[in-house]
Simulated assay, not measured.
Amino acid sequence: MPYLLNALSMLIQVAFGAIATLFMCRLAAEATRADFHNPLSQFIYRYTNPVLAPVRRALPNWRRINLAALLVVWLSLLLERLVIFLLAGFLPGAPGLLVLSLADLLDFVLLFYIVVIFGWSLLTMLSADPYQPVVRLAGAMAEPLLRPVRGRMMVGSIDFSPTVVVIVLLLARMLIAAPLLDFGTELVRGG
């Protein structure tokens, strides 16, 4: 029976992760003012707008941050945690679940940017077409994080700024998100 629960948990994580990723892409694309004429940007907009349009009436943007998309990402991660706990036959307390879901949100955002920066730098190293929609969107999303260190981490003609930013994001996962996840787990356990 635990094998079936593990498989079901994995499927739930994939489904909620896909939803969170779609809305995180919308959040990052809007925040970086990614090219709307990009077919990938249009796809993201088309499939997130029916959910975000009503929420944005109550929760408008703050500067360039789409708070409605951030709320949907957080709610999807909260529901994922809740469903997995319920599958295990455990009803978590609200404070622990809220802390865990906020830690999940922070960890998810950090991991999202690690994947975007790594994917973009890999595509550029492989000399992918710079006008390809994925390269353009990933480049637009990665640029705000890379801009502060770009050009400062050069060795010859190689720019190591993506490596430095990924290391900083990995450290943030280890030193900020992981302790917050541990704290939320302790709250859920009641310890």
Results as ranks from 00 to 15, higher is better:
Leu82Glu: 15
Leu97Pro: 11
Val83Thr: 15
Phe90Asn: 14
Leu59Met: 06
Phe85Met: 14
Leu91Tyr: 07
Ala53Thr: 15
Asn61Asp: 08
Ala88Met: 08
Leu52Pro: 00
Arg56Trp: 09
Pro60Asp: 07
Pro54Trp: 06
Ile84Gln: 09
Phe108Cys: 07
Leu82Gln: 06
Trp62Cys: 11
Leu97Val: 10
Val99Ala: 08
Arg56Asn: 08
Ser101Cys: 05
Leu106Tyr: 00
Pro50Trp: 11
Asn49Pro: 06
Thr48Ile: 05
Pro95Ala: 12
Leu71Pro: 03
Val72Trp: 01
Ile84Phe: 02
Leu79Ala: 15
Val83Gln: 13
Leu91Trp: 03
Tyr47Pro: 06
Leu67Asp: 13
Ala58Lys: 03
Arg46Val: 01
Leu75Trp: 09
Val55Thr: 07
Leu75Met: 15
Val51Met: 06
Thr48His: 01
Leu91Met: 13
Val99Gly: 00
Arg57Glu: 14
Asp104Pro: 00
Asn66Phe: 04
Ser76Pro: 07
Ala88Gly: 12
Leu98Met: 13
Arg64Cys: 10
Leu70Ser: 13
Val72Arg: 04
Val99Asn: 03
Val73Gln: 02
Arg57Trp: 10
Ala88Cys: 04
Ala69Ile: 04
Trp74Arg: 01
Arg46His: 10
Leu87Ala: 13
Tyr47Phe: 15
Pro50Val: 04
Leu105Pro: 02
Val72Met: 08
Leu100Ala: 13
Pro95Arg: 00
Pro54Gln: 06
Gly89Pro: 15
Leu77Asn: 02
Gly96Asp: 08
Leu75Arg: 09
Asn61Gln: 12
Leu100Phe: 07
Trp74Asp: 11
Leu102Ala: 03
Leu52Ser: 01
Ser101Ala: 15
Leu79Val: 06
Ser101Met: 02
Leu59Asn: 05
Trp74Thr: 07
Leu78Pro: 01
Leu105Cys: 03
Asn66Val: 09
Asp107Lys: 12
Arg63His: 10
Leu78Cys: 13
Leu91Phe: 14
Asp104Gly: 14
Asn49Asp: 13
Arg46Gly: 11
Asp107Met: 11
Phe90Val: 14
Ala94Leu: 15
Ala68Arg: 06
Ser76Met: 05
Phe85Ser: 14
Ala103His: 00
Val55Cys: 00
Leu75Asn: 12
Leu82Phe: 12
Asn49Trp: 10
Leu52Phe: 03
Pro50Ile: 05
Ile44Ala: 03
Leu70Lys: 12
